[in-house]
């Protein structure tokens, strides 16, 4: 996979570009940041629109509250920091000051997942999808590439209510055959009938590679980019389960309560089929992103192995 030179760009970059554009196209957009402005790529907006940028220092809870106050006054605030702090440190502020009032606050949490690398467990956000999707009114989006992050950011403004954008640090290639990006609508990016692989964020790339490897073994996998864990695209998921009879999910996130759990919640009531949730158990550790994907079993190789195991279960049940 690394032999071919592919243009790579992080999802945080896509977010930053969209923010800059929104600065021009929407006068209500304001940006708040908790001392990680460049890391979240909010500095392009800050430098061009300093009067609409609010520096909050290392104070995530206060930042979420201020964002609520700005939203209550007609602004469309983007509150930016690392996902670990946005979703964890300020969770109660998001619960009461943002979600309970269904306010138009957009939260950008970058450095999601283990691909943060060297910073290790404290800075690798692994729980945001779970923490955010359980909040009423909250939309949760996990873009898979820079283009999706850009579009998700632009579209978030048109959603009346809070939106959480999970962004990554590592540059990633563009999703092939991505299709039209629309928050809430999953994209089938590889077709297949033997099983469905549902992925989000950086794991979409792995899922596509795994599908190609499986194809060489005569197994066709349908790859679904579920970039919006909430509101979840039930129709696409149920259809995939019914047509393939086996569902494998993968996310760069705890395997408990995240995207895979959201898929399971849908299928258990509608189309229960053999299923496997791939994700992370426990806390992250320091390392290079690719080493960490290997360490935590989040590679195309692991996907292929789990797919084969899942197909055996499917066969047994038939």
């Amino acid at each position: 996979m690394n032999e071919v030179k592919v243009k790579k760009e992080s999802t945080r970059d896509g977010f930053g570009k969209a923010l800059l554009e929104l600065g021009d196209t929407n006068a209500d957009v304001v940006v708040l940041s908790a001392d990680l402005t460049e890391s979240v790529r909010a500095h392009w907006f800050r430098d061009k629109y300093p009067d609409r940028f609010i520096s909050h220092g290392v104070a995530e809870q206060d930042m979420m509250g201020a964002a609520a106050g700005l939203a209550l006054s007609g602004k469309i605030p983007f509150a930016c920091t690392f996902g670990a702090f946005a979703s964890g440190r300020a969770w109660d502020q998001i619960r009461i000051s943002v979600a309970y009032m269904n306010l138009n606050v957009k939260i950008a949490g970058s450095h999601g997942g283990i691909s943060v690398g060297g910073d290790g467990a404290t800075h690798q956000a692994l729980e945001e999808i779970a923490l955010m999707r359980i909040l009423p009114n909250m939309t949760v989006v996990v873009p898979a590439d820079s283009r999706e992050a850009y579009l998700a950011t632009i579209q978030a403004v048109d959603i009346k209510g809070p939106v959480y954008l999970r962004l990554g640090r590592a540059p990633v290639p563009a999703v092939p055959n991505a299709g039209e990006f629309k928050i809430g609508k999953a994209n089938v990016i590889v077709d297949g009938g033997d099983l469905a692989i549902i992925a989000c964020g950086h794991m979409v790339e792995k899922a596509v590679y795994a599908a190609h490897e499986l194809a060489q073994k005569g197994i066709t996998a349908r790859v679904i980019n579920l970039h919006t864990p909430k509101p979840i695209d039930r129709e696409t998921i149920i259809k995939a389960a019914m047509e393939t009879g086996a569902v494998l999910t993968i996310e760069e996130h705890t395997m408990y309560g995240g995207m895979g759990s959201a898929v399971a919640e849908v299928l258990v009531e509608t189309a229960p089929v053999p299923m496997k949730i791939m994700g992370i158990k426990g806390f992250g550790v320091s390392g290079e992103p690719d080493e960490l994907y290997e360490h935590f079993g989040l590679t195309e190789k692991h996907l292929v192995k789990e797919a084969e195991k899942l197909l055996k279960r499917k066969k047994k049940q038939a």
């Binding site: 930042m63 509250g65 700005l70 000051s97």
Partner: peptide, 25 residues
């Protein structure tokens, strides 16, 4: 009622956000 409250310590942040917005406008 301007803001939902009850979880203590959150009102002043929201109030500051409103004050910033009023200054902007």
């Amino acid at each position: 009622v301007e803001v939902s409250t009850g979880s203590l310590g959150q009102g002043l942040s929201v109030a500051a956000g409103m004050a910033i917005a009023d200054k902007m406008d």
